[in-house]
Amino acid sequence: MIEMQDVWKTYTDGSHALRGVSVRIEKDEFVYLVGPSGAGKSTFMKLIYREEVPTKGQISVNGFNIGKLKHRKIPFVRRNIGVIFQDFRLLPKMTVYENVAFAMEVIEAPKKVIKRRVPEVLELVGLKHKVNSLPAQLSGGEQQRIAIARAIVNNPSVIVADEPTGNLDPETSWGIMKLLEEINYRGTTIVMATHNKDIVNTIRRRVIAIEHGHIVRDVVRGDYGYDN
């Protein structure tokens, strides 16, 4: 569960990214974040995975007060949050298998568990046959599936996806959405920022619209609401 209470974020250069955001996202929810460029969507998500701290206000994720978190504790809270970006952020010199296993090694999971779990998630994202490929040998959609596999491999309770289909053609984007729906169906909260009107209007979910750092709309089965 994610909860924000009157959250403000002013960057050091003085730009106000968020101005008094209050919101509550329940476990199992699938939420679209929409709004014009520069509205504050990425900032909203960075606050969730503690890349940034709020200038004012409170955020709690799974009961942890994220803004007041001790530095030592950040890694442990992050293990419960999977992050996906539009540029995939895979390690180019590692194979598909290694890229996913890396996320488990880093949190010191036992080798046995890694060996069992990695094929499992690769199967889920439909890329089990590509375990030994390098990212450069894969299509954009396949690369994003690997990134998703990496994000879910440690069983996070929340997935934060910042324009996950931003670099993909429409057809591939649908594939990725199917996958995210599947993950959400299995009980993972998903917060996804997007500019994709078709997706938001077709796969109807809760829509939170942000403009100039304010939440201007929050509808349970909303639509995109902007002309692209």
Binding site: Y49, R72, P75, R78, V83, R89, L91, F102, V106, N154
Partner: peptide, 16 residues
């Protein structure tokens, strides 16, 4: 840097 960034994102501790 890239690797370290990803390590941080998936929850590696600083000492790791």
């Amino acid at each position: 840097q890239r690797e370290i960034g990803i390590m941080k994102l998936v929850g590696a501790t600083n000492s790791f």
